[in-house]
């Protein structure tokens, strides 16, 4: 039980649980995330109620909503630590890669929750017909994971800077471009009825993106955390 790897997992989980508990207490990030997404969705849905929307527009709109909601809240994970001055204590607690893993999983959960809430609402409000739900869900899942994977490190970078909110979006956007292209493309293919085959390239790209971004983040996080 005292093997290195189980200690690693335990500590990462502890970080994760702590963040979840803290969040549940104040619900600041959750609120920001959901309210932003929900408001945007309602605005979009209402403004376009007369329009007969093609699938590619719907796909784009979906990810625009998710993207902007993320920009409003995902950096919170590290900014919290800076603001409450708990960063120092956290540094002593575990290796950087362990901390990173905890924070990453937290962001993934946050984002998945967001998608869980937004997707059904989106389908209903925008009157989207989903030919095959499984690839649709998979694309969204992969997109969310990739999004969290890319932005967690950037959140850590921004936490130490001055003009956080805008900077977070500015830094994230170029790095997220491949993800957005693949996610929108994949969603488009899936909603058009092309299913797995149509979305195959995009799904491969999403997986590659998530893997690469997370792997690099793990390596680089040490420098950001203990710079």
């Amino acid at each position: 039980m005292s093997s290195k790897s189980s200690g690693w997992v335990n500590k990462a989980t502890a970080v994760l649980v702590k963040d979840i508990r803290t969040e549940l207490r104040t619900r600041y990030s959750l609120n920001a995330l959901f309210m932003f997404a929900f408001t945007t969705l309602v605005v979009v849905s209402f403004s376009l109620r007369q329009a007969a929307l093609k699938v590619d527009i719907l796909a784009a709109l979906y990810w625009i909503i998710i993207f902007f909601a993320s920009m409003s809240a995902l950096a919170g994970v590290f900014i919290k630590e800076e603001d409450t001055k708990t960063a120092q204590t956290l540094k002593l607690y575990a290796k950087p890669s362990v901390i990173y893993t905890g924070k990453l999983v937290y962001n993934i959960i946050l984002l998945l929750l967001l998608c869980l809430l937004v997707t059904p609402l989106f389908v209903i409000l925008m009157d989207v017909s989903v030919p095959d739900p499984l690839p649709f869900v998979v694309v969204i899942l992969l997109g969310a994971i990739g999004l969290a994977g890319a932005t967690t490190l950037i959140g850590a970078i921004v936490a130490k800077a001055n003009v956080r909110g805008a900077l977070f979006a500015v830094l994230s956007f170029p790095i997220l471009l491949p993800l957005l292209v693949a996610a929108i493309g994949g969603t488009n293919a899936v909603l058009s009825g092309d299913g797995w085959i149509g979305a195959e390239n995009d799904i491969k790209l999403l997986i590659a993106y998530a893997v690469i971004m997370i792997a690099i983040s793990v390596v680089l996080f040490d420098f950001v955390w203990n710079g």
Binding site: I154, K160, I175, L177, M213, F223
Partner: peptide, 18 residues
Amino acid sequence: GILGAVYSIFAFPTVPFF
């Protein structure tokens, strides 16, 4: 310098992607 370097490295993979 450190954060700039980290970002520079992190942003790089997107270039060949594109």
